[in-house]
């Protein structure tokens, strides 16, 4: 079996296992504590995400075997430099917007007199995004 197909099956199995584990844990411990419910739902969501990814990869592997020409077209579209440039520009613009949004949310939360913990969590999230951006920038300065 090819590498792509193998990865797809591994993801499918892990996804399925996570979904089963989440259902079982929700059935047995879900009602005990709210945190258990949240964890069960999170595992369920992650499991379904992996299942979806696995199905997608499996379809891609099958298509590559069945119709290599179509797969080549899909890959050209995916790796097209203009598409990549557009995608990167869109992400950069969305990042700028997210910084403004985070700041606006912080002001709104402060006006609403929301608990300080919640405000600090949002502030931390904003700082993590900004520090990560700075880290990538410094890394690229060295590499490029």
């Amino acid at each position: 079996m090819e590498k792509g197909g193998r990865t797809a099956y591994i993801l499918l199995i892990i996804g399925l296992l996570l979904v089963i584990i989440s259902v079982i844990s929700f059935y047995f411990f879900g009602s005990e504590r709210f945190a258990y419910t949240v964890v069960s739902y999170s595992i369920f969501g992650g499991g379904f995400g992996l299942l979806g990814d696995g199905v997608g990869r499996l379809n891609a592997a099958r298509l590559a075997k069945k119709d290599p020409e179509r797969m080549r077209l899909i890959n050209i579209e995916k790796n097209d430099e203009r598409n990549i440039a557009i995608d990167e520009k869109a992400r950069a613009k969305a990042y700028t917007l997210s910084i403004y949004l985070f700041s606006a949310v912080l002001v709104v939360l402060a006006i609403m007199r929301v608990e300080l913990k919640a405000i600090l969590i949002v502030l931390c999230a904003e700082l993590i995004v900004m520090v990560y951006s700075l880290y990538i920038r410094l890394k690229l300065y060295k590499e490029m």
Partner: peptide
């Protein structure tokens, strides 16, 4: 090995290639 849209944009001068 690029998309047809890339060729179109190149020809129109809307996109500068790498």
């Amino acid at each position: 090995e690029v998309s047809r849209q890339t060729i179109g944009s190149l020809e129109n001068g809307r996109y500068n290639p790498s």
